[in-house]
Design a protein around this nucleic acid. Structure first.
Lengths: 146, 146
DNA sequence: AATAATTATTTGATATATCAAATAATTGCG
DNA sequence: CGCAATTATTTGATATATCAAATAATTATT
């Protein structure tokens, strides 16, 4: 049964790439704001444009709702964001970025931008487009079952 | 400062893809062997060809050594593998797949293969090659700092 | 040989991932 | 309206991720 060694499939490469990128990002972000994770920064970025529901944010950042509950708890404790009950629908938790959160994200933006540039250095627009399309295909294939 | 929204960068797509693939894999693998994680199965696959040191395996599967210690502990408890002291170098932990581990991995192989096929369905060899090369570039870019 | 430096692994602390079950609010329907 | 179904979130349990510090064995150096 022509069974490839796990390390020879692209899916392994995808894993490798994302881990390398996460490591780079965390390292550089910690240099600017020591006490924040990459994912927390991402959540702040998302909330910077529009306030949202906890579940909405979770969907955007691909987090399990249970994880999201805990991450938000920490972020509220650190005064990065506030969590209030949505008055239209009391099941929903409205998340808003705090002033401190805004300051922090502004401080981080240049580094976040730089991380992306570092990661994508020397990748042409054409390659980026190819990469994007292929990844989308794979994602779609994986989500067929749902 | 032309700062892209986080969701518009390919790095976000990479994250999305790998999460979708992991979900698919875990779902299908659990159907065959309910009590094993994708990563544990990967470790068994790695060890199937050659017995190795714990650190060697960790490097291959991109795991932190501390994580590896804990994963191995669980896998030993479940009788998927054995852990013994390397006699040449007593710092090293030699990992070997057990009979039960072998049986389980044989049982899983067809599904693992199928998962890969599902994920990569309709992706041409040319695309795979492109994908692979671009990912390698990104990984390299991220590892520059080290 | 004795000590310093390095390597492999572990442990503790904390954060996150994931599943299943619980809770609470809202919606749909007879 | 009253209740079943659905939706948003939480909690508990367990697994994994990550960093820093500790341990133990090995290697390099003086």
């Amino acid at each position: 049964m022509d069974f490839n060694t796990p390390t020879t499939t692209v899916l392994y490469s995808i894993e490798e790439t994302i881990k390398a990128y996460r490591k780079l990002s965390q390292l550089n972000i910690s240099q600017i704001v020591p006490d924040i994770t990459v994912d927390q920064a991402l959540i702040l970025l998302i909330l910077e444009s529009n306030d949202m529901t906890q579940t909405e944010v979770a969907d955007i950042v691909f987090k399990d709702y249970a994880s999201m509950t805990r991450i938000v708890k920490l972020m509220v404790r650190k005064d990065y964001l506030t969590k209030t009950v949505d008055n239209q629908d009391k099941r929903k938790a409205k998340l808003e970025i705090t002033e401190r959160g805004k300051v922090i994200i502004e401080k981080l933006k240049p580094m976040i931008k730089r991380n992306r540039e570092t990661a994508l250095n020397s990748i042409s627009d054409k390659e980026l487009d190819q990469l994007y399309k292929i990844l989308k295909k794979i994602t779609k294939n994986c989500n067929i079952i749902k």
